[in-house]
């Protein structure tokens, strides 16, 4: 019998690792830029301006209330309509950046609000300017409380980057599907892919758990 499907080879592992590298690239870019944007939004929401807080919150809430998959498809079709074709890496990453930012904003806002008002006022009384107080008092205290939740968001972004496969970017999950179609050895491939995701995510989640425990004691 002629062989229709070729079996799994060592070079295929390399193909998967290449996919994993792309997953890491998307995740790192999304988390970095998403965090920066999210910090700005979170800061805007922590200002004592009702209308601003409400406006930013309502807009960001949309990104948290619509499935990421729908956002990806929508943005992908939108750029085709608007006539800005871009590689799937960027259309996927841009959506992921905004999604991450909308999650980080909440984390940052609650981090800033966790800093006692008295502490901030005291800093101002000592003659620190608004930005000095932000930089030397609110940031260190607030970011420390926000860190575990932020790590949770970062982990979610890594896992959600798998959805970019739906708009055709060949990251880890998509690479595994391609291999699967050729070799039909789904169990082995899924096991490897699961292990790779686990190897990326588990150390980070352990780190978060340890950090939280240390904060408590």
């Amino acid at each position: 019998m002629t062989q229709v499907f070729t079996t799994l080879q060592w070079s295929d592992l390399w193909f998967l690792l290449e996919g994993a590298w792309k997953t890491i690239q998307i995740s790192v870019v999304s988390i970095l830029i998403g965090t920066l944007l999210g910090m700005v939004f979170g800061w805007l929401m922590s200002l004592k301006n009702r209308a601003l807080t409400f406006g930013v919150m309502a807009v960001l809430d949309v990104f948290r209330s619509v499935p990421l998959l729908i956002q990806l498809i929508l943005f992908d079709s939108f750029i085709a309509i608007a006539g800005f074709p871009m590689p799937a890496f960027w259309s996927g990453t841009i959506v992921l950046i905004i999604y991450t930012a909308s999650l980080v904003a909440v984390v940052v806002q609650s981090g800033i609000e966790a800093v006692p008002v008295g502490l901030r006022n005291a800093a101002r009384c000592l003659g620190l300017s608004y930005w000095q107080e932000m930089r030397h008092v609110t940031a260190p205290v607030g970011l420390r409380t926000a860190f575990p939740s932020w790590l949770g968001v970062a982990l979610a972004t890594i896992k959600d980057s798998a959805l970019v496969s739906a708009i055709g970017y060949v990251e880890l999950l998509r690479a595994s599907q391609i291999l699967n179609t050729r070799t039909q050895e789904s169990v082995k491939i899924m096991l490897i892919v699961g292990l790779i995701y686990f190897a990326i995510s588990y150390p980070l989640s352990r780190m978060g758990a340890r950090y939280e425990q240390r904060q408590k004691s």
């Binding site: 982990l155 896992k159 959600d160 980057s161 798998a162 959805l163 496969s165 999950l173 899924m190 892919v193 699961g194 995701y197 686990f198 995510s201 588990y202 989640s205």
Partner: peptide, 11 residues
């Protein structure tokens, strides 16, 4: 718990 939390839901 660890598998559920550390692999993508799509996976």
């Amino acid at each position: 718990v660890e598998i559920a939390r550390n692999t993508p839901s799509l996976f």
